[in-house]
Amino acid sequence: MSDSIKKPSWKERLHEIIYEADTKEGKLFDVILLIAILASILLVMLESVKSFDNAHHSLLNIGEWIITILFSIEYILRVISIKKPSKYIFSFYGIIDFLSTVPMYLSLFFIGSQGLVALRALRLLRVFRILKLARYIGASNKLMLALKASRAKIAVFLFFVVIVCIILGTIMYMIEGEENGFTNIPVSIYWAIVTLTTVGFGDIAPQTPLGQLIASAIMILGYSIIAIPTGIVSSEMTKTDVDTNTQSCPSCLKETHKTNATFCYNCGSILN
């Protein structure tokens, strides 16, 4: 009796393990990569400590090459396991994966004192591996969707903040003047931004009673506007709170499909 259920091909099986986390193998794959990413970031940090690097440079270099080879294998498997490799290669995560892997190979071509500066810059690109962690945080997709949906409202809010800073900076320039450190309008706007965001470097401070009163009002205003972008994003996150899984489309790599979905919501391809 022939088996009526079609068995998935090796590419489909590989895609399920690499791009999804609903299976035991997929979870194990993600855990191994998480450990490798954290280890690589630790190696980059330790390498920047001169005393530790001088004492353990060979060990750090061997560890980095092991992780680089592991990420290279991961990159190749991600490319060959989807129907349209270009969708992954030129995607955000594809570019991040490439930038986090290629510096070690490029460093082989920068030999000699003249290439030390470029070599250091290339090796520091490995810090991009920290961005690889985002794909393994379940809530990150929901946050990205909420930020995308609220980008217009956030843009209006930022435009309002810029206008307020320009107006307040100009007012403080007229009140305080050059003798109190507000030498021109751009410097005064810089002070308004620093004060409104509650950073308060203290390099410039109003000296007149009226200027101090306005500065106090700006500080209080700064605390009140902090909640606005948070509320905008939180509102959009509640709208995107739907029942989704980690299933990834083998054709276009779109994620956040609804549970029990048969077809991709973006390209219509059949999901594995």
Rank of each mutant, 00 (worst) to 15 (best):
I35K: 04
F109K: 02
A192H: 05
L213I: 09
G211W: 05
I73T: 07
V102M: 12
E178I: 07
K27F: 02
S2G: 03
L158D: 04
I80N: 02
L158A: 13
L43F: 14
I167G: 04
K27A: 00
I228M: 03
P186C: 06
I76W: 03
L38T: 04
R78N: 06
S40D: 08
A192N: 08
A21G: 15
N141Q: 12
R126F: 09
M45I: 15
W10L: 12
I82R: 14
F128Y: 07
I163K: 03
L147F: 15
V233T: 09
I204F: 07
W10A: 10
F98L: 12
P8G: 07
I37E: 00
L108V: 03
C264R: 01
G202W: 02
L33I: 11
C252M: 12
G26Y: 07
T238G: 14
I89G: 01
T68L: 02
P103R: 01
I17N: 00
Q207Y: 01
A39S: 11
T208R: 06
I5T: 10
T195N: 02
G26D: 06
R129P: 00
L70Y: 13
S48A: 12
I226L: 14
E16L: 11
K239A: 14
I137G: 00
I35E: 00
I228T: 05
G202D: 01
F71P: 00
R120Y: 12
W65P: 01
I193Q: 02
M1V: 06
F71I: 01
L60N: 00
L59G: 05
E12V: 09
V79S: 00
K254Q: 15
N180K: 01
Y190K: 10
G211R: 08
A134N: 01
F159M: 09
P8F: 01
G222K: 03
I111Y: 02
L70A: 14
I62Q: 01
Q114A: 12
I35V: 14
V156H: 10
I137L: 09
N260I: 05
C267A: 15
V102N: 08
C249H: 06
S91N: 08
Y105A: 12
T68P: 00
F157E: 04
I166Y: 11
A217E: 04
F201A: 11
V31F: 10
S235H: 15
F109I: 07
L168V: 15
F157A: 03
R123P: 04
P103L: 01
K7N: 04
I18P: 00
C264Y: 04
Y223Q: 09
S113H: 05
R13N: 00
I89Y: 05
I163V: 15
S72P: 04
L158E: 07
P229M: 13
Y173K: 15
I228A: 08
I82C: 11
S224L: 14
